[in-house]
């Protein structure tokens, strides 16, 4: 599994590198979360029939983590892996932010922060009205939680007893211009979500077993469940980890060596990417 996770990060990087730009650090922090949801029997889905009745819904509210989602969707068969090579290029279905209805497995367009959770509450409410058993999972960034709609949606989800909704927050503690603590004085969102009436489960967001255990717990609370996944922004490449400078950046020649070494990238793979640029 460790190899697989490393391979996903490698593919994320190579895809970004061939497109010349992308949000790699934000994608690196959610790899284990997505791996657990899609590969550990949490989400019910049919990659050959993305709109199948009875499926569970995953909504990536932090749309800039798209590269991690695309890798995992391709890996489980929603679309062919060769499509990843077209990322952010003319004619591609895969943009820097996921866009509905072009990408199989993507339920809604995201990119502007603070939309996904509201959308997810609408889906969860409709499922409840129709007596359907499907579940809704929405992944937010912790920086994104500065958006007011996140709290409007949380309030609504609690009031409407949307226990079919799981709100996952990628707590990497870094936003574009610095740490959440420096930018907005936020140390943790735990008390915020608790104050809104949610049950909060805090986990190591890079520990698949821990994530799996948390997601598999039965929710009897009549409330939406909040999973605060503590992560490292840029996880997997030492120079990227916990460094806000890497929010929207690719490596220079010297930095590239670190990526190559730490993600086991071959010279041929780099050359292959360069051909695509």
């Amino acid at each position: 599994m460790e190899d697989k996770l490393k391979e996903i990060r490698k593919e994320i990087f190579l895809t970004a590198y061939s497109a010349s730009i992308a949000h790699i650090a934000s994608a690196f922090s959610i790899v284990e979360i997505l791996y657990t949801l899609y590969k550990c029997n949490i989400l019910n889905y049919d990659p050959k029939n993305p709109n199948s009745e009875g499926r569970d819904y995953f909504i990536l509210s932090k749309g800039h983590g798209s590269l991690a989602l695309y890798q995992v969707l391709a890996d489980v068969g929603f679309f062919d892996k060769s499509i990843l090579k077209t990322f952010s290029k003319p004619g591609s279905i895969l943009g820097g932010e996921p866009c509905y209805p072009y990408v199989p497995g993507v339920e809604t367009s995201t990119g502007s922060l603070g939309h996904g959770l509201s959308y997810a509450t609408g889906v969860a409410k409709a499922l409840k009205l129709d007596g359907k058993k499907s579940k809704v999972y929405c992944l937010l960034g912790d920086g994104e939680c500065e958006e007011g709609t996140v709290w409007e949606a949380t309030m609504f989800a609690v009031h409407e007893r949307l226990d079919n909704l799981t709100i996952i927050v990628d707590c990497n503690k870094i936003q574009k211009m610095g740490s959440l603590e420096d930018v907005m004085g936020i140390k943790s969102y735990k008390e915020y979500f608790q104050a809104f009436g949610c049950d909060v489960c805090e986990v190591n967001g890079h520990d698949v077993e821990e994530l799996e255990k948390c997601f598999k717990q039965v929710n009897n609370s009549l409330k939406p469940r909040v999973v605060l996944a503590n992560t490292v922004k840029g996880k997997g490449v030492s120079i990227v980890e916990n460094n806000p400078r890497w929010h929207w950046k690719l490596p220079n020649k010297r930095e590239l060596k670190v990526f190559v070494n730490e993600l086991n990238i071959s010279d041929e793979e780099i050359e292959e990417c360069k051909k695509l640029i």
Partner: peptide, 8 residues
Amino acid sequence: AASAGLAS
């Protein structure tokens, strides 16, 4: 935004 989810 939630109404878009309902419509879906």
